[in-house]
Design a protein around this nucleic acid. Structure first.
Lengths: 136, 136
DNA sequence: TATTAAATAACAATAATTATTATTTAAGGA
DNA sequence: TCCTTAAATAATAATTATTGTTATTTAATA
């Protein structure tokens, strides 16, 4: 769990109760929630919070390297306070998203099944970077 | 390239000019187009085609195993007529999506760079399947 | 404490996708 | 070949996720 106060201040950004609440929520869950789920979780204790602020804050956190955004094939993006990239297992029935340790990649599929106890049927691996036209 | 006529008829589905055109377009490109791009490409030669039909056809093709859907972090889904799952490289500048052979997974990152000539910075590996609660 | 630029809440707008429905059409049988 | 009929389509409305706008509030510093 990173020191959000230090990181925000270092970039000249304000430390607000909303930002603290959103980061705290994300860093205490393994649910990989989307913006709506974060909003629903925080609304009871932060009754003035608005969903647009959740979206804007997540966008900001992403650009600060405080969270990573996951596209798992659902309409809405999921968020994870663990920013080191690592594999995920997505349940095609209930949408649950589970973490898998990064170092498992070498033996891949079988180990991923063991680790998550999922019945894994397919996978999608996406590399992100700059294409030959854009890298120069 | 699969025999779409045979596959559709086997499921009691109709073989329509729209379906043929969409599948032909997808199986002749390596662009991994989204619904809008498919529509734009076909509209000149199929002036009555509607975007909603493209969406419905892609959904149908997905459920028939004729195409795979890719979430690469963009707002819209991309489609690929190659249905065997395989890694992709996404350019973070222009959005280009390149294929990577499946068997590369063992040596992963470095080989992916060699193969695509991309400057790869991160990756996302997602396994799809049934979680412990759903698999029984 | 006062100042000020940044952040927020509220809400409007947009983009991607899905739903609805009247019309058209593919496919099989007369 | 023509009929019939269920399925597919086009047109368009509706929905959902997300982003933009703006007046108000607030964190941070002087």
């Amino acid at each position: 769990m990173k020191d959000i106060t230090k990181i925000l201040r270092a970039k000249g950004l304000k430390v607000t109760p909303q930002r603290i609440a959103i980061y705290a929520m994300l860093s205490h869950t393994k649910e990989h929630p989307n913006a709506e789920m974060i909003y629903q979780a925080l609304e009871p204790t932060n009754p003035t919070l608005s969903l647009a602020t959740v979206y804007k804050t997540l966008c900001l956190f992403k650009s600060c390297g405080l969270v990573q955004e996951l596209s798992v094939g659902e309409p809405s993006a999921r968020y994870d306070a663990v920013t080191q990239t690592h594999p995920h297992a997505v349940c095609t029935c209930c949408g649950k998203v589970a973490d898998i340790p990064y170092d498992i990649l070498e033996q891949l599929h079988k180990q991923a099944c063991c680790y998550t106890d999922f019945l894994l049927e397919s996978e999608q691996l996406i590399f992100y970077g700059k294409c030959p036209d854009c890298k120069s």
